[in-house]
Design a protein around this nucleic acid. Structure first.
Length: 271
DNA sequence: ACTGGCTCCTGAGGGC
DNA sequence: TGCCCTCAGGAGCCAG
């Protein structure tokens, strides 16, 4: 499932292959994604040069001469660059055919992903305009988290997964970061000291940055079109490890549903 | 202003 | 072998 590191990895992998290429045609095989793919996606990009590929939160932005293609991978989506004479697979819902004979395919079995096109500043798009700070930017700080927490009673796990506050912290990395910071996921956000938020911010940065480094493996697979499952699973400390010993103290890892999501933590190490 | 819950979808995995 | 059931999961949206 694409978390922020995987989206960033995808971006880095695609950019050198897409930059300077021209989109010859777009084929929408199945418009039924998270939101119906607008017919504009099939027409507006045609004939346009690709100027760059950037990322905001988990959205990939493919910048054209006039306008931007906005892609979200949802939880099962992937983008694959293939030779044009290779036939599309099941669940290849949208294809961008390039002048050089290659084709960029959005593959998304569960169809939680989405594709949009906008001629305006993409950061002003309704899906992007109210997003919080990037976790790897200087804007993501402990005082920011602390001020957003205020006196709120919401679990700190909800706080860091709230995309209006900070983007890109998915369910897996929320558990991992809170473990690294020694903070219990259910602790009310308003009852955490600034100093502990310093630790949490550092932990989120560390976990995401490490995952991006590991994403390099996925990058090559991605470009070559060879899947390599579970590349980051081996470095997970708590996620999916219920009842297994904590890597710090040895007591069994707990699991509980918090924020409608399965959450893993060590009840002894995290307070 | 907050908060919790629902929703989209399909593959995987367990039970029988 | 195969069918059925349940669950996971990003994030927008809505109701209370």
């Amino acid at each position: 499932m694409p978390e922020l590191p995987e989206v960033e990895t995808t971006r880095r992998g695609l950019e050198p292959f897409l930059n300077g290429q021209r989109i010859a045609a777009v084929r929408i095989h199945d418009p039924r994604l998270r939101w119906p793919v607008s017919p504009q996606v099939a027409t507006a990009p045609c004939g346009q040069l690709i100027h760059g590929v950037s990322r905001r939160a988990k959205y990939l932005l493919i910048h054209l001469e006039r306008g931007t293609i906005i892609i979200h991978l949802g939880m099962s989506g992937s983008l694959r660059l293939a030779s044009g004479n290779e036939s599309p697979r099941t669940h290849d819902h949208v294809e961008f055919l390039l002048d050089n004979g290659h084709v960029l395919r959005l593959h998304d079995p569960r169809r939680f992903g989405s594709v949009h096109f906008t001629e305006d500043d993409p950061l002003h798009h309704r899906l992007l305009s109210s997003l919080g700070v990037e976790p790897l930017s200087d804007a993501f700080t402990a005082p920011l988290l602390k001020s957003k927490a205020g006196s709120r009673k919401v679990a700190v796990k909800n706080l860091i997964m709230d995309a209006k506050i900070v983007v890109g912290v998915g369910n897996i990395y929320a558990s991992e970061s809170l473990f690294l910071a020694g903070i219990h996921p259910s602790r009310p956000a308003g009852r955490i000291a600034l100093q502990r938020y310093e630790g949490l911010v550092a932990a989120i940065r560390k976990v995401l940055a490490k995952a991006i480094t590991q994403g390099g493996t996925t990058l090559r697979d991605f470009v070559n079109g060879v899947g390599e499952p579970g590349y980051f699973a081996q470095s997970l400390q708590v996620y999916g490890r219920a009842q297994q010993p904590c890597t710090i103290c040895g007591s069994p890892i707990s699991s509980r549903v918090i924020a409608q999501r399965n959450t893993f933590f060590c009840a002894k190490c995290q307070r």
